[in-house]
């Protein structure tokens, strides 16, 4: 019977690839993630052909690296590999002296690291309510609509009259402020 990879987890695929070097397995990983990688590349390169080339080069790199890397979470590993590739590519293109862009990319990536502050314990609910009430109007409205009323960005924009960019930024900044507020309160109470 013809083997199928589509229902197997990424990590299991990698185990099988390491054992068999079967290229159809890396083909499955490419199928799963090439569009995400393209999106990432386009975000930073802003040019379609360059982004497509970068996708190819990133997967070549990933497949080479798979041989001697222990990968426990393929998606995260692919993301950091792709980010590092894009930073190196930027440096290479600018022939080193212009580091600003690469740093800018790096900063953007840092800003986009997952924010786990909203994974809260149940007993923190009151603290969270308190934190929300301390946000400015813009951030509080967006956070409440997005997380509590579960409205998509476009509806939050429509209700508030803000543009999409402002909504996303208010949610991002609101989350950061919630995190800071809660950390501060926990420290004060020795929690």
């Amino acid at each position: 019977m013809k083997p199928t990879h589509s229902t197997i987890s990424d990590e299991e695929l990698i185990v099988r690839y390491k054992a068999s070097q079967d290229n159809s397995i890396t083909g499955e990983l490419y199928k799963r993630y090439s569009m995400l990688v393209f999106g990432l590349c386009y975000k930073y390169l802003k040019e379609e052909t360059e982004a497509q080339d970068a996708v190819t080069e990133i997967f070549v790199l990933v497949i080479r690296k798979l041989a001697d890397h222990e990968v426990s979470n393929f998606k995260s590993w692919l993301y950091s590999t792709a980010k590092n590739y894009l930073i190196r590519r930027q440096k290479r293109l600018q022939n080193q002296p212009e580091m600003i862009e690469a740093e800018k990319i790096s900063e953007n990536f840092m800003e986009n690291e997952p924010d786990r502050s909203l994974y809260i314990r149940e007993q923190d609910t009151d603290l969270l309510q308190q934190a929300i009430s301390h946000l400015n109007d813009e951030q509080r409205t967006c956070i409440e609509l997005f997380y509590l009323q579960q409205k998509p960005y476009i509806e939050v924009a429509s209700i508030t009259g803000y543009d999409l960019k402002k909504v996303k930024s208010a949610i991002q900044n609101g989350k950061r402020n919630l995190k800071l507020f809660m950390e501060e309160k926990r420290q004060q109470h020795g929690a």
């Binding site: 569009m35 995400l36 990688v37 393209f38 999106g39 990432l40 975000k43 998606k75 995260s76 692919l78 993301y79 990536f109 986009n112 690291e113 997952p114 924010d115 786990r116 909203l118």
Partner: peptide
């Protein structure tokens, strides 16, 4: 909560 997805 998924920066990769967000960037993509």
């Amino acid at each position: 909560n998924d920066p990769f997805l967000q960037d993509a």
